[in-house]
């Protein structure tokens, strides 16, 4: 950790995982994973397929309960954090049904559901939040388009807008740069910087190591457990990467990996 940053108190931690073990149908998907992520950082989550990236995401969202250890988000239990809409998940482009009959506006409004009443009737503040979120991702003119009529990059921005409308302090992004054009990539990178300034923390699961180097100030390396985490410059060493990818020669790993396979 850099000495220039303020010391980490528990109140400054967005994500705190301590010796977390997760069983998945009898197999250990994650063991003794410990992680501390402070407010306002962009963190890459790097590991092979099946290394436990999806498992970690699911544990952070409260879908999987650790069999050992604990997870705190903003100092709260995962369930409490869920109730406060603290965690937003931004799916992969192919993670949702694109032919679903909803408009861009409808999708972003879904980010507000958690703070609405039982009937999910949108109020003025909800509409204002959605409007503002769409402005930030530059999709306001396309708000009435069906979600299926968007390009892959635009769709990704719509789901980012949903996370903004939700006002989440922790964003979990699954392969955000897959199938995204240069303009969207630039816009997303700018947004990530703004999020960091707003003290939100972003966890980006990705195969693409060059993106980690370009966008992430933190990195977490996982292979069934957290191998290393911290400043990208310190952690992103050939030795650590070799460990992460099961002993492959580091020079192969410094470029973008061609693998686009999704984790199960």
């Amino acid at each position: 950790m850099s000495a220039a940053r303020p010391p980490l108190g528990p109140d400054r931690l967005r994500i705190e995982a301590d010796q977390v073990c997760v069983d998945y149908n009898g197999t250990m998907a994650l063991h003794d994973a410990s992680l501390r992520l402070e407010a306002g950082c962009i963190c890459g989550l790097v590991g092979m397929n099946g290394a436990g990236k999806t498992t970690l995401f699911k544990a952070l969202m409260g879908f999987l309960r650790p069999s050992k250890g604990y997870i705190r988000i903003n100092g709260l239990s995962v369930r409490q954090a869920q109730r406060q809409q603290a965690v937003a998940y931004v799916p992969q482009s192919d993670g949702v049904d694109c032919a679903f009959p909803v408009s861009v506006w409808d999708v972003v409004m879904m980010g507000r559901y958690g703070s609405m009443n039982l009937l999910r009737v949108a109020g003025a503040s909800d509409r204002a939040a959605v409007h503002h979120a769409l402005e930030r991702v530059e999709l306001l003119e396309l708000r009435d388009r069906p979600i299926g009529a968007l390009s892959g990059g635009q769709r990704k921005r719509a789901f980012l807008a949903r996370a903004i409308a939700q006002d989440a302090s922790v964003l979990l992004l699954d392969e955000p740069f897959n199938g995204v054009d240069v303009r969207t990539e630039k816009l997303m990178a700018d947004l990530f910087m703004q999020f960091r300034k707003e003290q939100r923390s972003i966890l980006i699961s990705t195969h693409d190591l060059s993106h980690v180097r370009n966008f992430c100030d933190r990195v977490v390396l996982i292979n069934k457990t957290v191998l290393a985490y911290g400043e990208t410059s310190e952690v992103f060493t050939p030795e650590n990467l070799s460990l992460t990818f099961g002993g492959l020669p580091p020079n192969l790993l410094m470029g973008p990996t061609p693998s686009r396979e999704n984790e199960r």
């Binding site: 879908f63 869920q82 937003a88 998940y89 909803v102 879904m110 958690g114």
Partner: peptide, 22 residues
Amino acid sequence: LVLRRDLMLFCFDPTHARSIGI
């Protein structure tokens, strides 16, 4: 009628629905 928004979200994106505590 009461749950029409929740059910719509459940059909469209159950992951998001779960992550916001539905």
